[in-house]
Amino acid sequence: MPINKKPHNNISPAVLKKMYITMLRIRRVEEKIGELVRAKEIICPCHLYIGQEAIATGVCSALRKEDYVFSTHRSHGHYIAKGGDINTLMAELYGKITGCSKGRGGSMHITSPDIGFPGSSAIVTGTIPLAVGVGLSFHIREKDNVAVAFFGDGATNEGAFYESLNFAALKKLPVIFVCENNLYSTHMNISKCLSDTRIYKKAEAFKMPGVCIDGNDTIKVFEQAKKAIDFAREGKGPSLLECLTYRWRGHVGPNIDVDKGLRSEKELKSWMAKCPIKRLEAFLMKQDILSKSEKEKISKQINKEIEESLAFAEKGSFPKANELHKYVFAKDLDTKNLGKRI
């Protein structure tokens, strides 16, 4: 179906406000990380999510804690939206032992297993089969949880994407494929790499629902995600959501890539004018869900959280060099109940 233009309904003011806070938290965290990368305080490659906040927020707000989310190299937004701790995120970017991945992963490999965020991966499409596997596990164990795979438009060029859509649809697995179409696969415009740029159409070939959403409209993302999630929970199978959006910064790092001739300033400005946060904020204020004083309070609170996260990161120690080999292998399972060892 084409872009869904139906107005929102049935979203409580509390959820709407929480989504606003989450989006602003993602934005401010990413802006701060951008500054720190520019200042060479943070060295590991950071792919910033600024401009795309509505998608992670809209989808994750419709999930339960026990539902799983898989992310990509552009991972911070999904992590925060699923409820990830920004203290341990920041410490991870500094390579500290107190980081969410204990200084072994960095920006592209963050984790929070207790809240259904097993990890993010830097290989394009790499986590899509994993999300299908989580869906398979829920299916085998007859649980009504769902798995979400976030990925970019570039990922739809990989074979594993199609294998995953087919298998999930074939077995009616509870998986939501969320494509964040930000129009660029690193430097390459989508028109240069896809023979048909309507990504949501690919769902048809696998007999699953596919919708195209304005990915800068948080409420629409939430509504469509909720629909797909309910569909999956009922055992009806996967859905593909294509969310149209734009990343304000370059593929990696804090710069905007306009000077490199990779995209035009006009294009960037046109998308900045469609800021998903300003849009939701204006809506909430118009609906009297958010007051001016509350808005200021939220803003201050987030700034405070970020300051605290930096202090937390600062305070943490680096891993010891003699712990290089730690975590190559997990501890073996105790097999004593299985029978004799010889």
Partner: peptide
């Protein structure tokens, strides 16, 4: 067929799916 799963020829997708199930504590 829920636990003995014959699959399409999709080695990458299926190996990844098994790994995903392992991430939830199953032992595929």
């Amino acid at each position: 067929e829920n636990r003995i799963i014959d699959t399409p020829v999709s080695e990458s997708g299926i190996t990844g799916a098994a790994a995903g199930a392992a991430l939830t504590g199953m032992r595929p």
